[in-house]
């Protein structure tokens, strides 16, 4: 039996635990990265490299080393997945007419990670997740979507309590840092400071709105018409304020007195899901779409 098939078979019969964490929820720049790390349940001690702990307590170099170790483990011992949500996607979802908040975006990403693991053939029975928003609702989403989960732990500070979540936090953090470092400005966009081209090592600071470097970068790079490069999350209030102050005021072709759109009642089917005839089984993800619950 080829090794690939062998581990796939083993992965199916063993019960696996998965840990999920994110990096980059707060910053106004760059992607939000969700990462998962899975290993056979109960084997966290032997499968996870020593030194793995909450990514915030490690230096960038330590994180890189551990990241390398984590990624080198054979897939029948330890596996990792990542979901990268671009700043454009975040802006688009949060500013859409039917807004999707960051918590829902985060929950969807975490659920997608578990789905990826299951699709890859892993039999996942335990999940450990750092909480975002209400822990109870978050946990319910996991249980509804994945009935095979025997144990779901959603709690604050899970990244320091569970080794798998710590490992996931390292993968997420390193992935985000690398993406930010490699971020290529679209052609023609230059750092506003004296027309200097925006190279890979830019001085936007930590990306958090509270960082003065980030604020200065944002101040330099606001374009009166186009706003910001796609690296920036337009939906952050700090951007909204800057755009209001520095960008030109747009007068839309439709005058204010007119209605922008013909007032149209929305369909009831946006809210209720069709029930399959003859079956009363509740599908995961059924329910009011816009009460913040996941869709299939």
């Amino acid at each position: 039996m080829p090794p690939q098939e062998r581990w796939e078979k083993r992965a199916r019969v063993r019960e696996w635990a998965i840990g999920i964490d994110e990096a980059g929820r707060g910053p106004v720049l760059g992607p939000l990265v969700y990462a998962a790390c899975a290993c056979p349940a109960g084997c966290e001690g032997t499968r996870i490299p020593s030194g793995v702990t909450d990514s915030k307590q490690l230096s960038a170099a330590q994180r890189e080393t551990l990241y390398g170790q984590l990624r080198r483990r054979p897939p029948d011992q330890l596996a990792t997945w990542t979901v990268v949500i671009s700043p454009q996607e975040i802006s688009a979802k949060m500013l859409a007419p039917r807004k999707i908040n960051l918590n829902t975006i985060s929950h969807d990403a975490a659920l997608r990670l578990v789905a990826q693991a299951i699709d890859a053939g892993y039999f996942i029975t335990e999940a450990y997740v750092d909480t975002v928003g209400g822990a109870a609702e978050y946990e319910r989403k996991f249980r509804e979507r994945f009935p095979s989960l025997r144990r779901v732990v959603v709690q604050a500070k899970a990244d320091s309590a569970f080794a798998l979540v710590s490992a996931a936090s390292i993968v997420a953090k390193v992935t985000r840092d690398r993406q930010l470092r490699a971020w290529a400005m679209p052609r023609g966009i230059q750092d506003g400071d004296a027309g200097r081209a925006c190279g890979p090592a830019v001085d936007w600071g930590s990306g958090y709105p509270s960082d003065p470097d980030t604020q200065q970068w944002l101040a330099r790079n606001v374009h009166p018409v186009f706003g910001y490069p796609p690296l920036v999350r337009f939906s952050w209030s700090t951007c909204e304020e800057r755009l209001r102050r520095h960008a030109v005021k747009v007068t839309w072709a439709v005058s204010e007195g007119e209605q922008l759109k013909p007032a149209k009642a929305d369909s009831i089917l946006h809210f209720f899901l069709r029930k399959e005839q003859g079956t009363s089984r509740k599908r995961p993800g059924w329910c009011l779409r816009r009460l913040g619950m996941t869709r299939e």
Binding site: P97, R98, Q259, L260, K261, P262, A263, K264, A265, D266, S267, I268, H270, F271, F272
Partner: peptide, 10 residues
């Protein structure tokens, strides 16, 4: 049950 009008909110 009646679906709300979305356009008006915007």
């Amino acid at each position: 049950y009646l679906a709300p009008k979305i356009g008006d909110e915007e």
